[in-house]
């Protein structure tokens, strides 16, 4: 916005009072009460299902029909977590409501971390390099190549998914991390586009000063530009990490085996292994909790950054 638009015209200068103080002047602030109620309702609707998930995970499967309505289950237990993590014997697991099929969520959790971590780190670095080249370096064909990349934003993932599956299959990469990360580990058009826009916004003077100090293209990027770009790199890295954490269809197609199975795929398979007509809810909720915990850790350490990252990336 332009500076003139934000200036208050002289006749309009209001005493500096908080909006809340002004709103509560005079009449009973019914509207404000309604607004707080709406916000509280949203909070409850958001949090309650997660509470219920954890509560179910702590309930013995045998109690599921008879359990009371207390804050915690009548007989809280860790057995569901232990059995989905593969820390109990098959007999114990079956007794606690499992199907007896092998479940090893510890393994799947690690697989998810590998999948997510590889894609996030490598993709962010590669896209930063390319974004810098498109923003700052001069070479023939630059605008053409960049135009092609942006055009790829228009191709929906399902379209490239089928041929990519064939390609990965023909390479013999099914059920390997190489095959699972292949399509996204080097780039996504959006990350390149986003980082290029950021690099364009850095003042040139800094690089020009570094040029006078004899810093060349490669060194300029690693020693001058990257250290200045921690914020946007973290933003795009977080966006990628969240995407990879949630990814389901591609890992389902390319990484079903135990050795490469990520949490989302594992939950889907676990659901299908249910022994009876009723799914193994206590086990499933224990597994689901494991997909939520890392997200909470992320929010605790990077909550502000994550929330504010939506200001840039969300509207893409």
């Amino acid at each position: 916005m332009t500076p003139t638009r934000t200036q208050v015209s002289p006749g309009r200068i209001a005493p500096a009072r908080s909006p809340l103080a002004r709103m509560s002047q005079g009449r009973i602030p019914l509207g404000r009460i309604a607004a707080w109620v709406l916000l509280a309702l949203a909070a409850v609707a958001t949090i309650f299902p997660f509470y219920w998930m954890v509560r179910t995970a702590l309930t013995p499967a045998a109690d599921l029909y008879s359990d009371g309505v207390g804050l915690l289950p009548d007989n809280p237990t860790m057995i569901n977590f232990l059995r989905v993590l593969g820390l109990t014997s098959v007999a114990e697991s079956r007794e606690a409501g499992g199907s007896g099929a092998k479940v090893d969520f510890l393994r799947y959790l690690l697989n998810s971390f590998v999948y997510c971590g590889l894609i996030t780190v490598v993709q962010t670095l590669c896209c930063a390099m390319a974004g810098y080249a498109f923003a700052r370096l001069r070479f023939p064909g630059r605008d053409l190549v960049f135009g092609l990349l942006v055009a790829a934003l228009m191709v929906p993932p399902i379209f490239t998914l089928l041929p990519n599956f064939v390609l990965v299959k023909n390479l013999g990469w099914l059920n390997t991390f190489a095959g699972m990360v292949a399509p996204t580990v080097l780039m996504t058009p959006f990350a390149v586009f986003f980082l290029r826009q950021f690099f364009l916004s850095i003042p040139r003077e800094i690089e020009e000063a570094a040029t006078l100090d004899g810093v060349g293209g490669w060194g300029m990027f690693w020693r001058v530009v990257l250290p200045m770009s921690r914020g946007p790199l973290l933003t795009i890295g977080l966006t990628t990490a969240v995407w990879a954490w949630k990814d389901y269809l591609w890992p389902l197609l390319t990484g079903r085996d135990e050795e490469t199975r990520v949490l989302t795929v594992a939950l889907g398979i676990f659901l299908q292994q249910s022994p009876n007509t009723q799914p193994d809810w206590t086990g499933l909720m224990a597994g689901s909790t494991l997909t939520v915990l890392p997200v909470l850790v992320l929010l605790i350490f990077l909550g502000r950054r994550l929330v504010e990252s939506l200001n840039f990336t969300g509207i893409k």
Partner: peptide, 26 residues
């Protein structure tokens, strides 16, 4: 200026990824 040499170095991973897993499959 012409930064061809270093530019291709910067672009190599993304171009490989783009050609193999975006352009070709499209």
């Amino acid at each position: 200026r012409d930064d061809r040499k270093v530019a291709w170095l910067f672009l190599a991973p993304v171009l490989v990824g783009f050609a193999l897993f975006y352009a070709y499959p499209t």
